[in-house]
Amino acid sequence: MSTGENRRVGQVKEITSLTNPIVKDIRALAMKKFRDQQNAFMAEGLKLVIDALDLGWTIRTLVFGKSQRGNQAVEKVAARAVAAGALVLEVSEKVLGAITRRDNPQMVLGVFEQRWTTLKQIRPADGDLWVALDRVRDPGNLGTILRTVDAVGAKGVILVGDTTDPFSVETVRATMGSVFAVPVAKAGVDAFLAWRKTTDARFIGTHLKGSVDYRTVDYARGAVVLVMGNEQQGLPDALADACDALIRIPQAGRADSLNLAVATGVALYEMRRHALPSVGREEQ
Rank of each mutant, 00 (worst) to 15 (best):
residue 1 M to Y: 04
residue 2 S to D: 01
residue 3 T to F: 09
residue 4 G to P: 00
residue 9 V to G: 06
residue 9 V to H: 04
residue 14 E to T: 07
residue 15 I to W: 03
residue 19 T to Y: 03
residue 20 N to V: 01
residue 21 P to M: 01
residue 22 I to P: 00
residue 33 K to R: 08
residue 35 R to G: 13
residue 39 N to S: 12
residue 41 F to S: 13
residue 41 F to T: 13
residue 48 L to H: 10
residue 50 I to V: 06
residue 55 L to M: 05
residue 60 R to K: 12
residue 63 V to T: 04
residue 64 F to Q: 13
residue 65 G to I: 05
residue 67 S to E: 02
residue 68 Q to P: 11
residue 78 A to D: 08
residue 84 A to M: 04
residue 84 A to R: 06
residue 85 G to T: 12
residue 86 A to M: 01
residue 91 V to W: 06
residue 92 S to V: 10
residue 94 K to I: 12
residue 96 L to A: 08
residue 100 T to E: 09
residue 102 R to W: 02
residue 102 R to I: 10
residue 103 D to G: 12
residue 107 M to I: 11
residue 107 M to G: 13
residue 107 M to N: 14
residue 112 F to A: 11
residue 117 T to Y: 11
residue 118 T to I: 09
residue 119 L to F: 06
residue 120 K to I: 07
residue 123 R to N: 04
residue 123 R to D: 01
residue 127 G to S: 03
residue 140 G to A: 09
residue 147 R to K: 01
residue 149 V to M: 02
residue 153 G to N: 01
residue 154 A to G: 03
residue 155 K to Q: 14
residue 158 I to D: 03
residue 160 V to T: 05
residue 165 D to Q: 04
residue 172 V to L: 08
residue 175 T to C: 04
residue 175 T to Y: 12
residue 177 G to K: 07
residue 179 V to K: 14
residue 185 A to S: 15
residue 187 A to P: 08
residue 194 A to I: 14
residue 194 A to R: 15
residue 194 A to G: 15
residue 195 W to V: 14
residue 197 K to G: 12
residue 198 T to Y: 11
residue 200 D to H: 07
residue 202 R to T: 15
residue 202 R to E: 11
residue 202 R to G: 15
residue 204 I to G: 08
residue 204 I to T: 08
residue 205 G to H: 02
residue 209 K to A: 15
residue 210 G to T: 09
residue 210 G to K: 12
residue 211 S to P: 04
residue 213 D to I: 11
residue 215 R to N: 11
residue 222 G to N: 02
residue 223 A to G: 08
residue 223 A to C: 00
residue 223 A to F: 06
residue 225 V to T: 00
residue 226 L to F: 02
residue 231 E to L: 01
residue 240 A to S: 06
residue 244 D to C: 03
residue 247 I to H: 08
residue 247 I to Y: 12
residue 249 I to A: 12
residue 249 I to N: 09
residue 253 G to R: 03
residue 263 A to M: 04
residue 267 A to K: 14
residue 269 Y to G: 11
residue 273 R to M: 10
residue 276 L to P: 05
residue 276 L to T: 04
residue 280 G to R: 01
residue 283 E to T: 15
